[in-house]
């Protein structure tokens, strides 16, 4: 059974999600500050678990946050860890942050330190 693409529209407190299993292109973008991040991220985590069983040759994850709460960070960590289990294929994470947004840059550096995946921190003007 092939996995269908996942698209979730953004809300005031949750990000936009676009996961394309064929192209191996993932995007999470916007605000992630729900009080219960598990509720939002668990379906994403389940999807990524299924994806990781039959991933594309190359997977690229673009992440851009305007706000990120600690509850979401925990779920993201879980999600990255699952991507980290993919072996023999390329997986990389691009952590985008707005110019001058030191908090989001720092959040990226935290993940970069504790995650075992190619991780690029990229300053950007246009999202």
């Amino acid at each position: 059974m092939s996995l269908t693409a996942l698209h979730i529209s953004p809300t005031a407190f949750t990000p936009e999600v676009k996961f394309d299993p064929i192209a191996g292109k993932f995007e999470i973008k916007g605000r992630s500050i729900p009080e219960n991040a598990h509720e939002f991220y668990n379906p994403l985590i389940d999807w990524v678990k299924m994806y990781s069983e039959n991933p594309a040759d190359s997977t690229s994850v673009d992440v851009y946050f305007e706000y990120l709460n600690t509850s979401s960070s925990k779920s993201l960590m879980h999600l990255f860890n699952i991507l980290g289990t993919i072996s023999g294929k390329q997986v990389s994470i691009n952590w985008l942050h707005a110019k001058d947004d030191n908090a989001m840059k720092e959040a990226g550096e935290d993940f970069n330190t504790i995650i075992n995946l190619p991780f690029n921190i990229v300053e950007t003007d246009t999202i």
């Binding site: 600690t70 879980h78 720092e106």
Partner: peptide
């Protein structure tokens, strides 16, 4: 604080139900 945050974050992902007290560390850092 950075070190404590990073340690708590990696532990939190191992057992998602654990309250690693990330919030307070984050408040102090910010």
């Amino acid at each position: 604080l950075r070190e404590m945050y990073q340690t708590s974050l990696s532990e939190a992902a191992m057992s998602p139900k654990a309250t690693a007290g990330l919030g307070m560390i984050d408040i102090a850092r910010k």
